[in-house]
Write a protein that binds this DNA or RNA. Sequence first.
DNA 1: GCGACAG
DNA 2: ATCTTGTCGC
Length: 221
Amino acid sequence: MQIQQIHPWPSSVEEATEIQETLRNQVITTDQLNTPIQYVAGVDMGFLEDGTMCRAAVAVLSFPDLKVVETSLVYRPTTFPYIPGFLSFREIPAILDALEKIKNIPNIILCDGQGIAHPRRFGIACHLGVLVDIPTIGVAKSLLVGKYEELPAAKGSWQPLIHKNETVGAVLRTRTGVKPLYISSGHRISLPTAIDYVLRCTSKYRLPETTRIADKLASNR
DNA sequence: GCGACAG
DNA sequence: ATCTTGTCGC
């Protein structure tokens, strides 16, 4: 797929913050999906050589049967450090390169990390979604910001994730009795719809199949 | 000023 | 993210 270069990559947190403050206005948190949903994708990163090199992986699966139809893997130098709140600047450059090699354009991309459940409402899922203009969902394994009430142990149960008096996402149990996932809108999708697709992309494990496959590729397992 | 802090 | 063995529980 073709990818537009919208902005240069920053070399400081100040520049990165400006980009976030600007692009956050382009995020859409209502449903704008192209139906029917035929392909869903997962993206993930792995680091090697003491973190100086990284590997970005994309896995495109058919929906709703969740069969792998295409994968992409790129190996690149790491260009930005990990700073909470600025994850996208570390991971997206390589992810875009991996996405560029994909031929089956996904209808939804599940990202490893937050969407609008972010201090400036612009987590990695929002950033990637705005850059490629594809619906994205933030699927994080741990909390960045917000609070929530404890939720039932049953798969499918969830609680709103609140930050500064605002619902920014959901804490979702994707597997009974297992730690929940933090779901939030990335771009062009609402929270209820995001929760629905995350559950429909999850079969036997805590993580959606999309991210599990991309995870394996990126870590070479 | 003191903690919290996606991957 | 990554370094790492066994171990508890369904």
